[in-house]
Each structure stands twice: as structure tokens, then as C-alpha cells.
Nucleic acid binder design. Structure first.
Length: 104
DNA sequence: CCGTTGACCCTTC
DNA sequence: AGAAGGGCCAACG
């Protein structure tokens, strides 16, 4: 792990099924709590096999409506993982917000 | 090496 | 409560 995106990939890969994480949370775990934007950029360049669909906004909303080819696509993937959605169209962070525990 | 850009987040109007 | 603007850090040209 030398570059920031690479560290981000490792962290996102450690997100368990049925759990979600925020860009800010991942950025903090990566070593820069304010580099949330770098995390998003890294997600776009992220290779296949990376559960980037488990990464959401700080409020639980999806990234930018066009990620993964469509926010509804991400919603379906999250539901398949066991994630519950609120009537507001946001993910239930209080139920699925992942803690940065690398020890696992 | 310096400037620009970006799947974000926070503060203020 | 909703909308707008600025700031931050790291990669890329």
C-alpha cells in the first residue's frame, strides 16, 4: 500500500456483506479524514470485484445518481446484500453503518 | 515541479 | 428546512 486509492481498495474490500460505509469513513481509515473526494475518485478507478456499491454519502444517500450506471442499480445490489432502505430513499445507516474494524 | 480536477463534506444564507 | 458556496487532499498532465 503506497498510493491512497490502493489503501482505499483494501478497506472497501473489508466491508462485510449487509454493511455499508461512507466515503468520509473510508477516507479516515485510509489516513486522511478530509480526503473523501480522493476516495470517490479511487472508486471510479477501482477494479472489478470491489464492492463500491456499499459506499454511500454521509447521510446514507447514494453518491451522484449516475454511479454504477444508475442509482436504482445500486439500490438493487444493496437490497440483495440485505441492506434496508428508508422511505426517503436513503440507506438505514443506523442499522448497516459499518465500523472501521480491520482486525476482523 | 506547478496547476487543474474530482463517485465529497461542512458552513452559511 | 432547503439551497448555494467554499475547502480539503491526493492523483494526473
Amino acid at each position: 500500500m503506497s498510493t491512497f486509492p490502493e489503501a482505499v481498495y483494501q478497506i472497501v474490500r473489508q466491508i462485510p456483506k449487509g454493511k455499508v460505509a461512507t466515503y468520509g469513513q473510508i477516507a479516515m481509515l485510509a489516513g486522511s479524514p478530509r480526503a473523501s473526494r480522493i476516495v470517490g475518485a479511487a472508486m471510479f478507478r477501482a477494479p472489478a470485484g470491489l464492492p463500491c456499491h456499499r459506499v454511500l454519502y454521509r447521510d446514507g444517500t447514494l453518491c451522484c445518481d449516475q454511479a454504477f450506471g444508475g442509482k436504482e442499480i445500486q439500490r438493487q445490489m444493496l437490497e440483495a446484500e440485505g441492506i434496508t432502505f428508508l422511505p426517503d430513499g436513503r440507506v438505514d445507516l443506523k442499522e448497516h453503518l459499518w465500523h472501521g474494524g480491520n482486525e476482523e
